[in-house]
């Protein structure tokens, strides 16, 4: 079991090509923790914006009458991958992990696998 800081550090150091990571509460749109980022990548802005992405998808599923849950969301930019992974169980519901990857350096399959492991170990 790891805490927020350790999980974010783990994501930034063990996932190749990681540019930034955040744990976000999509009830409020605020980040519980952020690591990495830069002048051009404000993770608090990303947290608020991606909250809208997650909420829109959940609403769409509700409208389509799909009784299922989101495991992760992948957004592919020309130079980056953005991974959103929703937390499950242990009081983690209502939260998601957000990971920004450099598309040239990252291995998407490996990154997704690692993020799944980090999410499973994370206890908020």
């Amino acid at each position: 079991m790891t805490n927020t800081e350790t999980a974010l550090k783990d994501a930034m150091s063990s996932i190749e090509g990681a540019l930034g990571a955040a744990l976000v509460d999509y009830g409020s749109g605020m980040a519980l923790g952020t690591l990495g980022g830069s002048q051009s990548l404000d993770l608090n802005v990303a947290a608020a914006g991606n909250t809208d992405v997650v909420r829109a998808k959940l609403r769409t599923m509700e409208m389509l009458n799909i009784q299922d849950s989101i495991e992760d969301i992948l957004i592919t930019l020309s130079g980056q991958y953005h991974l959103i992974r929703l937390l499950t169980g242990r009081g983690g519901s209502g939260l998601f992990l957000y990971l920004v990857l450099d598309a040239r350096r990252a291995n998407l399959a490996m990154a997704r696998h690692q993020l799944k492991r980090i999410e499973a170990e994370l206890e908020v």
């Binding site: 976000v24 409020s28 749109g29 608090n44 608020a48 909250t51 809208d52």
Partner: peptide, 8 residues
């Protein structure tokens, strides 16, 4: 409301 967005 998205409070993060509201704040920003």
């Amino acid at each position: 409301a998205n409070v993060g967005r509201l704040n920003l």
